[in-house]
Computed example of a mutant assay.
Amino acid sequence: MSFQPIIPGSGLAGWSFLQSTLARQIEAFEDSAPVQRATDYFVENIGAVSSASDLVQDRRLLEVALGAFGLGEDINNKYFIEKVLSEGTIAEDALANKLTDSRYKEMAQAFAFDTLSPTGQTSFAQEIIEKYERRSFEVAVGEQNETFRLGLNLERELPEIASSRDANDTKWLRILGNPALRAVFETAFGLPSQFGQVDLDQQLGVFKENAERRFGTDEISDFGSPDRLEELTQLYFLQDQIKASSGLDAGSIALTLLQSAGQTQL
């Protein structure tokens, strides 16, 4: 896309500017010609789609559908996406239910091709477009500053998880299954990206332990409050700057990984 967000700096200063101008920048992004063309086409044509096959055969529709769930890089993986969508989520052994990345399940649930799909409803098109516009703006921000993209994603997605009726461990698992949210927490807690190779139960324990130590709570519902969300965001930016300036070597990363994993066995 040709739209370029205005980001005059990095770190907390740049983040503060982005936050203060966010509403105006998002509006300008949504009014840009490429976005208007994409969303208008989606509104005009999604109603005729009744199957996963219909969707993947129309690249312009598929771009919006995937973009709405942050899966734009899968645009050429048509067979995989068709399988995810056609199997849906009702069957326990459906592909979307087996994938670690929760975004595929969210997309399959939204399109519901395994049951009565809502694609013919006007409200459905609008819901997908709203997701597409917001996520696409975040992608545009990420092209200039990936840290800011993850910060915007955190502000959008974490309150939704926090307010859900899921059990606390389920909420944590949703975070662990979301690459962008997971990256924020890993950075905020000073964990290496290789930490994802550790047993899932150990990962859960370490994440909860770090949350308790740094914020005085491991309840994800508490992170739905603006103040706690801001605390997490600031810690993320601080740790990201420290990480960028220190440049941990492979030995340090391995040591951190072993220490973090070992803590859960105490």
Results as ranks from 00 to 15, higher is better:
A52H: 04
F111H: 03
Y104I: 03
Q121N: 10
G196A: 09
A91W: 07
Q121S: 08
P192M: 01
K131Y: 03
P226W: 13
A211Q: 03
E146W: 08
S225Q: 14
K131R: 15
S16P: 00
N97T: 10
E63Q: 15
R174H: 09
F137T: 06
E130A: 07
F148N: 01
L22S: 02
G67D: 06
R135E: 14
V84H: 01
T256M: 14
T217P: 06
P8T: 03
L235K: 06
E146R: 14
E44F: 03
D199T: 05
D40R: 15
P192C: 02
I129F: 06
T89E: 13
D93S: 13
N168A: 09
L200S: 14
L158Y: 10
V64N: 07
Q239Y: 01
D199W: 09
D40G: 08
V35A: 03
M1P: 00
A188R: 04
T122F: 00
P118A: 06
P179F: 01
A112T: 02
E106K: 12
Q234C: 02
G177P: 09
S16W: 00
R165W: 10
S102C: 12
I128K: 01
D249G: 15
F185M: 14
G251W: 08
R59H: 11
E73G: 05
S225K: 11
D166W: 12
I128S: 02
Q25Y: 13
E160A: 14
A110T: 05
S221P: 11
S32A: 12
G11Y: 05
E130K: 11
S252Q: 15
G47R: 05
L176N: 03
G9P: 01
K243R: 15
I75L: 15
K208F: 07
A28D: 12
P159N: 05
F207T: 04
Q259C: 05
A167V: 08
E212R: 15
R213H: 09
F223P: 06
S86L: 05
W15G: 06
E160W: 07
T115N: 10
G72Q: 15
T21Q: 15
V43W: 03
S163G: 08
E87C: 05
L248E: 13
Q241K: 13
T147L: 13
S102E: 12
N45C: 04
V206M: 14
I253P: 00
M1V: 05
